[in-house]
Design a protein around this nucleic acid. Structure first.
Lengths: 152, 152
DNA sequence: GTACCTGCAAACTGTTTGCAAATGA
DNA sequence: TCATTTGCAAACAGTTTGCAGGTAC
């Protein structure tokens, strides 16, 4: 379990190692990113950051997210509809996604058996697998029950 | 097993049903698409089509591929690196992809056990799965053996 | 003081569309 | 004939970058 402070320490360390600088903007962006719900795109994130620090530009959010990705604190995810979202990356954790095509809800899951089979398939093809992605698309339980979902 | 003629018949039928028109360009694009290797992007396809019919515009290729997709003859695939490729779609066939991050080679595979587990996971989450995607990334056997691959 | 960072605006990439001229049925 | 299609060029959306002024260290 990682506490928010860990992320700041980790980021500060990365910044130091690379000879970069810790700025107000970068701190704010990291803070807002951590506080956000797990899957967020740049535009939304920029909007949220502006609530805290209204002068921050889109390019800074963009560049900071690249930085957080390099630092191993964030992960860029491109989904099938072409949208790119960022999500916090916990060390050595892996999961896949289940996406509701009606309300857009994204649920995470992990399944050890599938992982094992994936490795096996790769091996059978003489392939050295480094990573993978799997997304299941369909209708979530909420939508099936007729409940609406408000964008959150 | 479908022969090239089947695709033309199928396309001609779709065109007729929709009250559209069978043009030289559409025929050429379909022909080149079928003859191409299985995963091709619009730019490459446009280049190939121009070899056969030099006046065809990019927009026509774009619109024709949308049409072929609607007709069920092609399938649009967005991969993790953000690139969109088209591939021929055989009726009720499903497969996933293994992508070499070194040479770009794309191999197809299918695995019944994984499919079953995917359905099971979805079910456990109260999710009605309509489709899914799975991609394994890594280094292919050719690259591991040190062989180069020429763009083909 | 200096190298790094920021915000802006503009460049870029890939996708999509409006339009006038051309064409298939 | 006449609605559909085409090629062009331009609009678009999302991403990326150059630069002049500002800031962390």
């Amino acid at each position: 379990m990682t506490s928010p402070t860990d992320e700041f320490d980790s980021f500060a360390q990365y910044i130091r190692e690379q000879g970069l600088k810790l700025t107000r903007q970068r701190e704010d962006i990291l803070r807002v990113f951590i506080a956000s719900h797990r899957h967020i795109n740049l535009e939304q994130l920029h909007r949220e950051v502006r609530k805290v620090n209204p002068t921050v530009g889109y390019a800074t959010v963009y560049r900071t997210m690249k930085l957080l990705t390099e630092a191993g604190l964030a992960q860029e995810r491109r989904f099938g509809d072409g949208h790119t979202l960022y999500e916090p990356r916990e060390p050595q954790e892996h999961h896949d996604h289940m996406i509701c095509t009606r309300c857009g809800r994204i649920e995470e899951f992990e399944n050890e058996s599938i992982e094992r089979l994936q490795h096996k398939v790769a091996e059978q093809h003489g392939f050295r697998m480094t990573h993978h992605r799997m997304e299941l698309y369909g209708i979530c339980s909420g939508c099936l029950a007729g409940r609406e979902r408000v964008e959150g």
